[in-house]
Protein backbone atom coordinates (compact mmCIF):
# COMPACT_ATOMS: atom_id res chain seq x y z
CA UNK A 1 0.00 0.00 0.00
CA UNK A 2 1.57 3.21 -1.18
CA UNK A 3 0.88 6.56 0.39
CA UNK A 4 1.53 8.31 -2.94
CA UNK A 5 -1.59 9.96 -4.31
CA UNK A 6 -2.67 9.29 -7.91
CA UNK A 7 -2.02 12.97 -8.66
CA UNK A 8 1.58 12.64 -7.48
CA UNK A 9 2.04 9.62 -9.75
CA UNK A 10 0.62 11.55 -12.68
CA UNK A 11 2.64 14.72 -12.17
CA UNK A 12 5.31 14.99 -14.89
CA UNK A 13 5.15 11.24 -15.46
CA UNK A 14 3.06 9.26 -17.93
CA UNK A 15 3.00 5.50 -18.09
CA UNK A 16 6.54 5.57 -19.51
CA UNK A 17 7.78 7.47 -16.41
CA UNK A 18 9.50 10.05 -18.55
CA UNK A 19 6.87 12.76 -18.70
CA UNK A 20 6.75 15.08 -21.65
CA UNK A 21 10.48 15.69 -22.00
CA UNK A 22 10.81 13.37 -24.99
CA UNK A 23 8.18 15.33 -26.89
CA UNK A 24 9.66 18.62 -25.72
CA UNK A 25 13.24 17.86 -26.81
CA UNK A 26 11.98 16.44 -30.10
CA UNK A 27 10.54 19.91 -30.75
CA UNK A 28 13.53 21.84 -29.34
CA UNK A 29 16.04 19.91 -31.46
CA UNK A 30 13.61 20.13 -34.40
CA UNK A 31 13.47 23.94 -34.15
CA UNK A 32 17.27 24.09 -33.91
CA UNK A 33 17.52 21.78 -36.93
CA UNK A 34 15.75 24.27 -39.21
CA UNK A 35 18.58 26.88 -39.38
CA UNK A 36 21.22 24.14 -39.09
CA UNK A 37 19.76 22.28 -42.10
CA UNK A 38 19.81 25.52 -44.09
CA UNK A 39 23.44 26.01 -42.98
CA UNK A 40 24.34 22.49 -44.13
CA UNK A 41 22.64 22.98 -47.52
CA UNK A 42 24.36 26.36 -48.06
CA UNK A 43 27.71 24.83 -47.04
CA UNK A 44 27.13 21.99 -49.52
CA UNK A 45 26.37 24.48 -52.29
CA UNK A 46 29.48 26.50 -51.37
CA UNK A 47 31.76 23.44 -51.34
CA UNK A 48 30.49 22.05 -54.66
CA UNK A 49 33.24 22.04 -57.28
CA UNK A 50 35.95 23.20 -54.87
CA UNK A 51 39.36 21.54 -54.76
CA UNK A 52 40.15 19.29 -51.80
CA UNK A 53 42.48 22.00 -50.43
CA UNK A 54 39.68 24.55 -50.75
CA UNK A 55 37.28 22.27 -48.90
CA UNK A 56 39.79 21.75 -46.07
CA UNK A 57 40.36 25.53 -45.80
CA UNK A 58 36.58 26.09 -45.53
CA UNK A 59 36.19 23.37 -42.88
CA UNK A 60 39.01 25.02 -40.86
CA UNK A 61 37.05 28.28 -40.71
CA UNK A 62 35.95 28.65 -37.04
CA UNK A 63 32.39 29.69 -37.90
CA UNK A 64 31.96 26.73 -40.25
CA UNK A 65 33.48 24.40 -37.62
CA UNK A 66 31.17 25.72 -34.87
CA UNK A 67 28.17 25.39 -37.19
CA UNK A 68 29.11 21.82 -38.05
CA UNK A 69 29.63 20.88 -34.38
CA UNK A 70 26.21 22.33 -33.52
CA UNK A 71 24.68 20.47 -36.48
CA UNK A 72 26.23 17.13 -35.46
CA UNK A 73 25.10 17.48 -31.81
CA UNK A 74 21.55 18.59 -32.62
CA UNK A 75 21.07 16.03 -35.42
CA UNK A 76 22.41 13.16 -33.29
CA UNK A 77 20.08 14.12 -30.43
CA UNK A 78 17.07 14.48 -32.75
CA UNK A 79 17.92 11.16 -34.46
CA UNK A 80 18.09 9.36 -31.12
CA UNK A 81 14.64 10.63 -30.12
CA UNK A 82 13.06 9.83 -33.50
CA UNK A 83 14.49 6.32 -33.88
CA UNK A 84 13.49 5.55 -30.27
CA UNK A 85 9.84 6.17 -31.20
CA UNK A 86 10.13 3.98 -34.31
CA UNK A 87 11.59 1.12 -32.23
CA UNK A 88 8.93 1.53 -29.52
CA UNK A 89 6.20 1.46 -32.18
CA UNK A 90 7.33 -1.61 -34.14
CA UNK A 91 9.58 -3.78 -31.94
CA UNK A 92 7.51 -5.56 -29.29
CA UNK A 93 9.75 -8.43 -28.20
CA UNK A 94 11.12 -7.45 -24.80
CA UNK A 95 14.78 -8.28 -25.47
CA UNK A 96 14.72 -7.11 -29.08
CA UNK A 97 13.18 -3.81 -27.97
CA UNK A 98 15.77 -3.11 -25.30
CA UNK A 99 18.59 -4.22 -27.62
CA UNK A 100 17.24 -1.83 -30.25
CA UNK A 101 16.88 1.05 -27.80
CA UNK A 102 20.46 0.57 -26.56
CA UNK A 103 21.84 0.22 -30.10
CA UNK A 104 20.02 3.44 -31.00
CA UNK A 105 21.75 5.32 -28.17
CA UNK A 106 25.09 3.79 -29.17
CA UNK A 107 24.69 4.74 -32.83
CA UNK A 108 23.63 8.32 -32.05
CA UNK A 109 26.48 8.83 -29.59
CA UNK A 110 28.91 7.33 -32.14
CA UNK A 111 27.71 9.81 -34.80
CA UNK A 112 28.10 12.74 -32.40
CA UNK A 113 31.54 11.71 -31.10
CA UNK A 114 33.10 10.92 -34.49
CA UNK A 115 31.62 14.09 -35.99
CA UNK A 116 32.80 16.39 -33.19
CA UNK A 117 36.26 14.80 -32.96
CA UNK A 118 36.78 15.02 -36.74
CA UNK A 119 35.79 18.70 -36.90
CA UNK A 120 38.08 19.55 -33.96
CA UNK A 121 40.97 17.62 -35.52
CA UNK A 122 40.50 19.47 -38.82
CA UNK A 123 40.35 22.83 -37.00
CA UNK A 124 43.35 22.29 -34.71
CA UNK A 125 45.58 20.80 -37.36
CA UNK A 126 45.11 17.87 -39.68
Amino acid sequence: MSLRTPLNDAKNHGSAHSGTMHFWFQRVTGIASVPLTLFLIILGIYLTGQSNEGIMATLKNPFVALGLIATVIVFAWHMKLGMQVIIEDYVHGKWAKYAGLLANIGFSVFIALVGIFSILKISFGA
Partner: peptide
Protein backbone atom coordinates in the same frame (compact mmCIF):
# COMPACT_ATOMS: atom_id res chain seq x y z
CA UNK B 1 18.51 10.49 -42.73
CA UNK B 2 19.40 8.54 -39.56
CA UNK B 3 21.63 6.30 -41.65
CA UNK B 4 22.58 9.18 -43.94
CA UNK B 5 24.31 10.77 -40.95
CA UNK B 6 26.89 8.00 -41.35
CA UNK B 7 27.87 9.47 -44.74
CA UNK B 8 28.25 12.99 -43.30
CA UNK B 9 30.40 11.73 -40.42
CA UNK B 10 32.41 9.41 -42.71
CA UNK B 11 33.19 12.36 -44.95
CA UNK B 12 34.21 14.53 -41.95
CA UNK B 13 36.35 11.71 -40.52
CA UNK B 14 38.03 11.31 -43.92
CA UNK B 15 38.80 15.04 -43.98
CA UNK B 16 40.36 14.67 -40.52
CA UNK B 17 42.30 11.53 -41.51
Amino acid sequence: LYFGALFLVWWLAAAAA
